Amino acid sequence: MIDALEGLRVVDLSHAIAGPTCTNMLVELGADVVKVEPPATGDGFRHYTEHGGEPMLSIPFAAMNAGKRSLALDLKTAAGREVLWRLVERADILVENFRPGALNRLGFGFDALHARCPRLLLVSITGFGQTGPLADRGAYDHIAQAMSGIALLNADAEGPKKIGLPIVDGFTGYLATIGLLAALRRRDRTGIGEHVDVAMLDAALKLVNTSVSVHSYTGRTPGGTGNRGFRLVATADFYPTGAGWIALGANTQQQVETLFAVLGHPDMATDPRFATHDARVAHYDALRDWLTVTLADWRAEELEARLAAARVPAAMLREVGEIAQHPHLAERGTLHPVVLPGWDRPLAVVGAGFATANHPPATVPVLGSHSDAVLGELGLDAAQIADLRREGVVA
């Protein structure tokens, strides 16, 4: 199978999570991604949490950047910026996640890029976008969760809660990839590049788009009630069992009736409080109390199997390590190994997330490990590369 993006050249000026998620997807689809990093420190994510071998090569960094090539280049120097121009002129795509204006100050704003490289696609990922009164603000994942309403939608009795993983960062990177692929399709038709403007706040709002639409029409905003804000019922929630936790997914009338039957209480389907969806919404607390007591007599693993056999969606709550070992993932090839230079064994990373991707990365780049090769491709000879290294422009 031919890689979808084979032959495309990408310059990656991004760091942390959102931007590298986008370029990670491009690697998975077969693009050649050159990650440009500061010579002394590299991407700050290189230093994030545990290390085990090569310095500046953390596991989180490896998960986001496997398969890329690393060029350690000082963009604060004129010589470094000239090297970047050489790289950009040979590229199809430039991805960055600086604050708005930072790329302009380096001399690589979209107007300058477009004048010199009219086919280039520029993808800019920021907290709030390139325009609007909030554009100059910085953001992290939990800031976007807070501003978008996600934290209040996820509230419990103790107050607002952030989702315990960088969901907005990741989703922003995926939206950036979608926007980029659309722009690439337009360029195929017109021959002209464009600026793809991606904002974390916009991505977060896309995650809560149903709540936005409910508010626009009714003036009401679900919040502080979890799933209940969307008129879901107690039969679609998490519960403790006698051994482990279970997620029930009985939403339709047939699923609810089957759930009651599997639990040994088919008569519950005729109880006026629980006989219809509207009744179950109105009597949420009573139904939840009943399920809590009833499920205490079950083991989560057993109930998952019984409900799956009865075609009712359900899942035992698992740790990440448990699902990573599941044979289902092995058969689908969801995870693949990459080499971590200096470490004692390969690292498992998650692939593109869909079965048609077929370009799993093989290794993780040590900072500057591809500098000589990339500079050579740009036409610099060994003496010129040595001069740049001696001046601290590259590493």
Rank of each mutant, 00 (worst) to 15 (best):
A146Y: 05
M147S: 05
S148G: 10
N154A: 15
N154M: 11
A155V: 11
D156V: 09
E158G: 15
E158K: 14
G159C: 10
K161V: 11
K161G: 09
I163M: 12
L165P: 06
G173A: 06
Y174F: 14
Y174Q: 15
Y174A: 14
L175I: 08
L175P: 01
L175C: 12
A176W: 10
A176D: 10
I178G: 06
G179L: 08
L181K: 06
A183L: 04
R186H: 09
R187W: 00
D188Q: 13
R189I: 03
I192W: 08
G193W: 03
G193M: 05
E194V: 02
A199F: 06
A199V: 01
M200K: 09
D202P: 06
D202G: 11
A204Y: 10
V208H: 02
S211M: 13
S211R: 08
S211Q: 12
V212D: 03
V212A: 11
V212P: 02
S213N: 11
V214C: 08
V214S: 11
H215A: 15
H215D: 07
Y217N: 12
Y217R: 15
Y217C: 12
T218G: 04
T218W: 09
G219W: 03
T221P: 01
G224H: 04
T225D: 14
R228S: 03
R228C: 05
G229D: 07
F230A: 07
F230T: 06
A234V: 01
T235N: 05
A236L: 11
A236K: 12
D237L: 02
Y239G: 05
T241C: 13
G242W: 01
G244S: 08
L248N: 04
L248W: 05
T252A: 13
Q254E: 14
Q254W: 10
Q254S: 14
Q255W: 05
V256H: 00
E257R: 15
L259Y: 01
L259N: 02
F260M: 05
F260L: 00
V262W: 02
A269I: 06
A269R: 05
P272Y: 02
R273N: 02
A275Q: 03
T276L: 04
A279W: 03
R280F: 08
R280M: 06
V281R: 03
A282G: 10
H283C: 05
Y284G: 01
Y284W: 14
A286S: 10
L287M: 13
L287W: 04
D289T: 08
W290R: 07
W290V: 00
W290E: 06
